[in-house]
Computed example of a mutant assay.
Amino acid sequence: MESAIPSHLQTARSRHRRVPDDYAPPYPSFVARHKSAVVSVVMAYFGVQYRGEPTAAVAEALAQIGQRFAMESGPAHWDRAQYVDQAGFTNVVSVAYWDDAARFDAWFGGAREAWTGSNAAGGEVGRFIEVLRPHVERYETLFSSLGRPEGVAVLADSMSGEVREHAYWGGMRDRIPLSQTDAMTPVGEPRVVRDGARIRVVAHDNLCLIRSGQDWSDTAAEERKMYLDDVEPVLREGMDFLRDDGGPIGCYANRYMRVVDADGRPTEKSYGQSWWKSLAALERWAESHPTHVRIFGAAMKYLSTLGPNAKLRLYHEVTVAAADEQFFEYLNCHERTGMLNAGEVATNGAD
């Protein structure tokens, strides 16, 4: 049994894990392992926002960012997903990953100007950029099975063996290396900075991001029906709650997205992606809010029914980013898009 924290990031703890050293999880889970030379990663979300049917301008924007990703110093991996937000706009989000900050910096200047710069300002679609570039001690991953990495884990050198820190409340925090010595408490409030037509959001220290995914592409007919009829509707209910009413509990924004293929067709993969005031706020929702209690209950019934024969694949990545590891910029987007919504949440108060 391995620790989720790689050996080169382990240190003497001043903050203890939520479980004793002899804890044995009831089922296996795994984490991504980067080479020790990797000191930070980049997670960059490039969004297109529109209402109604997609136009030629939408297609052009999606082609444009795909071409940018293929350029020298582009990402080592990217994927694309879409969802309809609380204002009725479709958002198509292309998420790109780097494990070399210098390569990203060499690429990002031109990409940013092309995406949200003056030439794009008069366009008929909204565009946004949301970037985290955390040090490796500030994020964690978790997978229910081996063989098909997602998100930032595609960049990893390998996957771990079975890890100890999972299947209990608090495991998410215990897998983040910084948690050994730091409470990762948020400091400050989000503020908005206007730059012509562009709007930037300056968040705060220890902002939290989670991407939590589901892949049912390997399931056979009976298991697929069970997931789509019994689990997915409960998951969607919880995701919609965070999207529409998450502010008071500390969720700045939530997207429940369907992954699409190269031609824009929905796949049998989805993920929730949300911005939180703190890891603690995310933990409170996960541990005690009725919407997540129902999600957890539906998932446990599903998994206990199928046992090791379950083919559903689950994963997540959770980041707690320092203030200088964040970048948020929006152009022609409605006021509740992504971290633009954080200003309203901060004004009205968040737990």
Rank of each mutant, 00 (worst) to 15 (best):
G122H: 07
G122Y: 05
G122L: 07
G122Q: 08
G123A: 09
G123R: 02
G123D: 13
E124Q: 13
E124F: 04
E124V: 12
E124R: 05
V125G: 02
V125D: 01
V125I: 14
G126L: 03
G126Y: 03
G126H: 01
G126V: 09
G126S: 07
R127H: 05
F128Y: 11
F128I: 03
F128R: 05
F128V: 02
E130P: 11
V131I: 15
V131T: 11
V131E: 09
L132G: 12
L132T: 10
R133V: 02
R133F: 11
R133G: 00
R133W: 05
R133E: 04
P134I: 06
P134D: 02
P134F: 02
H135Q: 10
H135W: 02
E137M: 09
E137N: 14
E137G: 02
Y139L: 15
Y139A: 02
Y139M: 12
E140Q: 09
E140R: 09
E140Y: 11
E140F: 09
L142W: 13
L142C: 14
F143D: 12
S144L: 06
S144Q: 14
S144T: 10
S145D: 13
S145G: 10
S145H: 08
G147N: 10
G147F: 10
G147D: 09
G147M: 11
R148Y: 08
P149G: 07
E150F: 06
G151K: 02
G151D: 00
G151M: 01
V152M: 12
V152Q: 03
A153Q: 00
A153V: 11
A153T: 06
A153Y: 01
V154Q: 10
V154I: 15
V154E: 10
V154F: 07
L155R: 06
L155M: 12
L155C: 11
L155D: 04
D157W: 00
S158Y: 09
S158E: 15
M159C: 08
M159W: 11
S160M: 04
S160I: 03
S160V: 04
G161W: 07
E162V: 15
E162I: 12
E162F: 08
V163K: 07
V163G: 00
R164S: 00
E165W: 00
E165T: 00
H166V: 05
H166N: 06
H166A: 05
A167V: 09
Y168L: 05
Y168K: 03
Y168C: 09
W169E: 07
W169Y: 13
W169V: 10
G170I: 03
M172I: 10
M172C: 12
R173C: 09
R173Q: 11
R173W: 12
R173A: 14
D174K: 13
D174N: 10
R175V: 00
R175E: 00
R175Q: 03
I176W: 03
I176S: 01
I176E: 01
P177G: 14
